[in-house]
Structures are given as structure tokens and as C-alpha cells.
């Protein structure tokens, strides 16, 4: 029995390789160097959602049905995150990064892999409170048009607000968090003023190049989906896009240690994953 299961598993891995190759050759979306464990889970989940029995059947549908492709990309790019996730990261940003940014006449910020926008709104709120927002421009990018649409809409579930409010206060926020949104039924919509200096745009970290020079780049919990080779490529891309002494932020469990650029940054503090480009 176990040999049969192992063979079925091997076959599935082959099919996944073919699906990813097909997506790349047909549309240029390159998931071939994504971390297999996670992408396999999502592909199997999608098979269940589409009520298909094999990865090959999913491949057929993704290649021939544009709406299925859209669902596939959405499925791969939605991450369940929160506003002010890891409050101490934002607290450190407020205390250590904001004073640095105040020395610049204009500040270019890139939120790479912004997904549904929680981080973008968190950052906009923080910058507004620190009277920096007006001179900032935030580029929020993702590979999926569908998640960018959601990010641009700025509509989030009301049920999440208690957690976000908590995070906001722990992150040093001193206002009423509810001042930033309007609630309607079971959703809230965030103030449009928060996105007045935000540009939402498609960008694929796996295949696209640099498009500007930034003083701040946040790429949190995005590269965890990539394998080591792709991580190395993206670390180089982000490094090249960051100005000297620019600030780079990663997720709490991400590390520069295993990357080619480790020696080119210094830690802003011991605890949070905020770095400064020094070489």
C-alpha cells in the first residue's frame, strides 16, 4: 500500500511540475521556483475547489479557461495577514525609521508583494500620524490583479477590527483606530485619504526588474513562498532597488542569514526584522 501511495505522490509531483511549466510558457507567470511544499498544498486545495480529480485536469482548465487562471493566481497570492501584524515591527518603524525618513525631502516606499493591502494601510496610517505621509509615495505591487483590486478597494471584514485595533495600539498608535474607517454591515472601508499617495501596480518579483530607487522597501512574508534560488534573486533585486542607507523590512521569521546580501545590511535593533543598507 505504501509503495502505491508513494508512486501516486511522485506522479502528482511530476504533474505539478508540468502545470507550472505550462503556466510559465503560456502566460509568463513563473511559479517554478516557488517553495514546493506550499504550492503543492494550494494546488491540491484548488483541485478540490474546482472539483477535479488530478493536477493534469487542473492544468487543462487553467490553460484554457481565463477565469480559472484568474482564480488560480488569486489562490496563490492571498495570504491571511493582519493590519499591524507583529506590532513591535511597526513600533520600531515608528521610533527608529521615521526619524531617518524625516531627513529626506521626499520618500519613495515599495511594499513588494502587498497582497490585499493590510500592510499598505497600516503604513499609511503610521506615516500620516507621524506627519510624513504627504512627502511619501508608496508603490504597492503584487503579481495578481485580483488582490490588487481588493487592496485598492480598502474594504476589510468588520470582524477583524478588534484584532487590528489591538495591534494598532501596541504598535504605538494613539488615536481611535475607528477614525480611519467607516463601517457598513459586516465590512469596513478605509479612508480614501490613506491611499492618496499610493500607487497600486502589477509587478512580478520572480521575473520583473527594478523600477525605481527607494528609501524604504518592505517585503514581509512574501519570499517565504520562494525556494532558495528565487529568494537569492529577489534579495539582489531589492538590494539594487534600495538607496544607500535605505531601510529594508522582512517578516518576523525571515532571515538575511541565508541570502547573498546578508553582509550588506545592518540591523536596526536586535528583535525586529528591520535592516539598513550600509554597503
Amino acid at each position: 500500500m505504501s509503495r502505491v501511495a508513494t508512486e501516486a505522490n511522485d506522479l502528482e509531483d511530476i504533474e505539478i511540475g508540468l502545470l507550472l511549466e505550462g503556466l510559465y510558457r503560456a502566460y509568463g507567470f513563473d511559479f517554478r521556483e516557488y517553495s514546493r511544499a506550499s504550492i503543492k498544498r494550494r494546488i491540491l486545495e484548488m483541485m478540490r475547489a474546482e472539483k477535479l480529480g488530478t493536477v493534469s485536469a487542473l492544468q487543462e482548465r487553467v490553460l484554457h479557461d481565463a477565469t480559472c487562471l484568474e482564480r488560480f493566481l488569486l489562490g496563490l497570492s492571498v495570504h491571511a495577514t493582519a493590519m499591524f501584524r507583529d506590532p513591535s515591527f511597526y513600533l520600531t518603524f515608528r521610533r527608529k525609521v521615521v526619524p531617518l525618513l524625516k531627513t529626506y525631502p521626499t520618500v519613495q516606499i515599495w511594499v513588494a508583494g502587498c497582497s490585499t493591502g493590510e500592510e499598505v494601510y497600516s503604513l499609511a496610517i503610521l506615516l500620516q500620524e507621524e506627519r510624513l505621509y504627504k512627502r511619501c509615495r508608496i508603490y504597492a505591487t503584487d503579481i495578481s490583479r485580483a488582490v490588487l483590486r481588493k487592496a485598492r478597494d480598502g474594504i476589510f471584514p468588520l470582524a477583524a477590527m478588534r484584532e487590528y485595533t489591538n495591534n494598532y495600539h501596541q504598535a504605538g498608535g494613539a488615536n481611535e483606530f475607528s477614525d480611519y474607517y467607516t463601517a457598513q454591515y459586516d465590512s469596513v472601508i478605509f479612508s480614501t485619504a490613506l491611499k492618496s499617495n499610493v500607487v497600486f501596480s502589477e509587478h512580478n518579483l520572480a521575473t520583473d526588474g527594478s523600477f525605481n530607487e527607494f528609501q524604504v522597501i518592505l517585503c514581509r512574508n512574501v519570499m517565504i513562498y520562494f525556494n532558495k534560488d528565487l529568494q537569492a534573486r529577489v534579495h539582489n533585486l531589492l538590494y539594487d532597488s534600495l538607496s544607500m542607507f535605505g531601510v529594508f523590512g522582512l517578516g518576523n521569521k525571515e532571515s538575511l542569514k541565508f541570502t547573498p546580501r546578508a553582509a550588506f545590511y545592518e540591523h536596526l535593533n536586535d528583535k525586529d526584522k528591520l535592516f539598513r543598507k550600509v554597503m
Binding site: 517553495s35 494550494r42 495570504h79 501584524r85 517565504i224 521569521k253
Partner: peptide, 21 residues
């Protein structure tokens, strides 16, 4: 496993994810 992440193993290393609970 750290809080608020899924933990997986891939090619002898850990892979984290923030997919839905």
C-alpha cells in the same frame, strides 16, 4: 512552530507560510 505561521518542510529546510488557518 512559530505562532501565526504554518510550518512545512521542504528539501531539508523549513518553509513558513501565512496561508489561511
Amino acid at each position: 512552530a512559530p505562532r501565526d505561521y504554518h510550518l512545512m518542510i521542504q528539501s531539508g529546510s523549513f518553509a513558513l507560510s501565512t496561508e489561511s488557518p
